[in-house]
Design a protein around this nucleic acid. Structure first.
Lengths: 349, 349
DNA sequence: GTTAGCACTCTATCTCTTTGAGTGCTAAGT
DNA sequence: ACTTAGCACTCAAAGAGATAGAGTGCTAAC
C-alpha cells in the first residue's frame, strides 16, 4: 500500500459519490493530483480490488468502492474540514427557536435541521429527560372530578395529563395532595422515579388519601414518558429521492423505525459510521448511517445521526453531525439558566 | 344506456380495481350475472367508450375506466353496504383509547385507524378546537421569572406554554393576574379569542399589570394554536406501495401536505370523491381522495378523508369514511360529560 | 516502475421478429 | 332488432440477434 494507491482509492470514492457511475481508470488518471497514466491507475486499481477495497459490477465496468473501501476512506483518507464560521452561525440560528427554549425543542430543531442540511433522514434517540429533575408538580382542577397533573422538569419540559377521580376534592384535600406530591417528588431526578418508587409513594399515602391514587397513577405515566427515550425521525421523505435505495425497504425502515434504537443506543464514542449490509436486518441495503452521541453531565444521554445512501458525501455530512452533537452537548450541559431551572431557593415557593 | 351497459361498466371497474390490468371482453362475458357473449360485451364496451366512461390504453388492450367512469360507478352503480355490526364494534374499539378521552385524541385515533384500515394515507383537517370554550386558565410559577400558562378547553385539550417575565411575581401579584385572566377568559369560546380581543385584554390591564403582558402573549399564542386548524396526516407510507402512484409525486405531496387544506376545506356536504387529474396541481396523478365532513353543534368543524390510488376499492373505503365521520360527529357533539366539561357551578372554583 | 497498445469482455442499446391478447367488423342466427 | 361466431387486424410486450463502446488485463517497450 503506497501513497498513490490511497490517493487513487480516495479519488474513486469521491468520483463515485459525485457521479453514481462506476469509475474507470481514465477518469482517475485525468484528475489533477494523480499524474500517472491510466495504465498505472489500472494496475493500482487491480491491487486495490484484490485487497478488497474496490469491486467491479462486471468485468468491463469501472470500479466501485466496497464497504471496506468506504471505511478506509472515512477513517484515514477523507479530509475532515470543520465547518466554516458563517456556516456555524447559520446552524446556530436554525437551532435557536424563539421563546423560552427547552431541551426537547432544541433536540427537535436539531433533528429537523440535520435532515434538511444533509438531505437524509435524521434520527435521534434522546434519553436526556431521564437525567433531569422534577422541578414542579401541580394538581389543577379541570372539571367535574377531573384533575390535571402537571410535571415540570429542570430541562424545561412541561407535561400534563388529565386524571379522573371518584369524587370532587375540597380545597383542603387539593392542598393536602398537592403538598404531599410536591414534598415527595420535587427535586427528585426523573431517573429515580421508577415504577417501584411510585408504588411506594402510593403505599405512603394515608387511607384517606388513597382515593386520590389516580393522580399518582397519572404522574407515574408522565414520568414513564420522561424516562423512556424519545425517538425522533425526520426527513424520511428525503430517502425516496435516492435511486440506490429500494423504495420498499425505505417504507419498511420507516415502519419499523423503533428497531433503530438498538443501533443508536449501542455504546461507542465519537462518530460511528455503519453500513446497511453489515448491520441488523432492519437497515436498508446500500444505505449507511452516521451516528454520534451527545452528552450531559458526564453521561451519554442520546444519539443523533442520519441515514442516507452509502454513496454519500461523508466529508460534508460528518462535520454536520460532529457540530450538532457537540453543540447539543454544550447547550444541554450549560448551567441551567432561568426558564429551565428550579434552584433550591425558589423551588419551594 | 341500458341496464346491461351499466352492469358491464360496473364489472369493468370492479375487475380493474381487483387486477390492475385493462379488462377485456372475454373476462367480463365469463363473469356471473352477465350472461351474454364476449361479442355483445364488446359492442357495449365500444359504446361506453364513446360515452367517455371507458378508455383503451392502446388499440389491442382491454378497457380501463375513465374518471367519468369511476364517478358514475361511485355515484350510481356501486353497492353501498354499511359496515357489519362486528366491524363497527372493532372500529369503535380502535377509536376508544384508555384514560380520559379528549376530542384531540379521538381524532388522532380516527386518523390512524383510517390509514390502517384502508391502506391509504389518511388526512384530517380539524377545526373543532375553535368551537370549544376555555374552561380554565391557570398561571403556574415554574422557575426564576418563568411562568407556565395553562389553558384547558371544554373539548378536553390541555395546552401549556412557558413565559418569561422581567421579574418574579409575589403571591399577591400571581393571584391578581390569575383572577384577571380567569375572569376575562374562562367561558369564552375559542373562536372569539381573536388577536383583537387579546389586544383589548392587554389594553384593559392596569399599568401595574402591564409587566405581566408576556403571560397574555403566551395565552394568545396558545389560542392561536387552538383556532388554527390542525392538519393530521397519517399512513403516508402506504402510498409508496402502489405501483400506479409516482413515488416522486408522493414525496411532493407529503412535503406540501399543507396545501391539501384547501381541498379539504372546500364546502360541500356528504361524501365527496375527487380525482387527482381534476383538481389542483398538488394532488398526485392517478390518485383519488375521498373526503367527508364531520360536524359539531350544527357546524362543519372538520374534514376527514383518505388519499389513495384511483384504482381503489371504493365500495370498501367509502363505508369506512362514512362511519368514521358519523361516529366522530356523534362523539364530539355529545353533551360534554365529566372530564371534558366545566359547567357553570364548578367553573369558578 | 511506468506506459502505450491491443485483444478481450460484457453491458447497454438498437432493430427485427414473434407472439398473443384484444379489438372491430361482417355475416349469419334467433 | 339484437346477439353471436368468425376472422382479419392492431399493437404492446417479449425475445433474439447484432452493434457499439467503455473498460479491462496483459504484454512488451521505455
Amino acid at each position: 500500500m503506497n501513497e498513490r494507491k490511497l490517493k487513487i482509492l480516495a479519488a474513486v470514492v469521491e468520483e463515485y459519490v459525485r457521479t453514481g457511475e462506476p469509475v474507470g481508470s481514465k477518469v482517475i488518471a485525468s484528475l489533477p493530483g494523480i499524474g500517472v497514466s491510466a495504465a498505472t491507475v489500472r494496475n493500482d486499481m487491480a491491487m486495490l480490488e484484490q485487497l478488497g477495497f474496490l469491486e467491479q459490477p462486471h468485468t468491463s465496468a469501472g470500479r466501485v468502492p466496497t464497504i471496506s473501501g468506504y471505511r478506509l476512506y472515512i477513517e484515514e483518507l477523507m479530509s475532515h474540514p470543520s465547518l466554516p464560521g458563517e456556516e456555524q452561525e447559520r446552524l446556530d440560528k436554525m437551532l435557536a427557536d424563539q421563546g423560552p427554549m427547552t431541551e426537547e425543542l432544541l433536540i427537535q430543531n436539531a433533528t429537523t435541521a440535520l435532515a434538511e442540511l444533509t438531505q437524509c433522514a435524521a434520527v435521534v434517540s434522546d434519553f436526556s429527560p431521564k437525567f433531569s429533575v422534577i422541578s414542579k408538580v401541580e394538581v389543577i382542577p379541570a372539571g367535574k372530578r377531573v384533575y390535571v397533573v402537571l410535571l415540570i422538569t429542570s430541562a424545561g419540559s412541561i407535561k400534563n395529563k388529565a386524571c379522573r377521580l371518584e369524587f370532587d376534592l375540597t380545597n383542603e384535600q387539593l392542598a393536602l395532595v398537592s403538598d404531599f406530591l410536591a414534598e415527595h417528588l420535587e427535586g427528585v431526578s426523573v431517573e429515580e422515579l421508577s415504577e417501584e418508587r411510585m408504588q411506594n409513594l402510593t403505599a405512603a399515602m394515608s387511607a384517606y388519601m388513597m382515593t386520590m391514587a389516580p393522580l399518582v397513577e397519572g404522574i407515574c405515566e408522565l414520568s414513564r414518558d420522561l424516562r423512556h427515550h424519545a425517538l425522533l425521525f425526520k426527513g424520511e421523505n428525503n430517502l425516496f429521492s435516492y435511486e440506490d435505495l429500494d423504495k420498499m425497504e425505505v417504507v419498511q425502515l420507516i415502519e419499523h423505525k423503533d428497531e433503530l434504537v438498538q443501533l443508536l443506543d449501542d455504546s461507542f464514542s465519537g462518530i460511528r459510521v455503519m453500513f446497511g449490509e453489515d448491520e441488523g436486518s432492519f437497515v436498508i441495503g446500500n444505505s449507511s448511517m452516521i451516528v454520534s452521541k451527545y452528552r450531559k453531565g458526564g453521561h451519554n444521554v442520546g444519539s443523533l445521526g442520519v441515514i442516507g445512501p452509502m454513496r454519500l458525501d461523508y466529508a460534508k455530512v460528518i462535520p454536520y453531525i460532529a457540530y450538532f452533537s457537540q453543540k447539543i452537548t454544550d447547550l444541554i450541559s450549560e448551567e441551567p439558566s432561568g426558564q429551565d431551572s428550579m434552584t433550591d431557593e425558589n423551588r419551594k415557593e
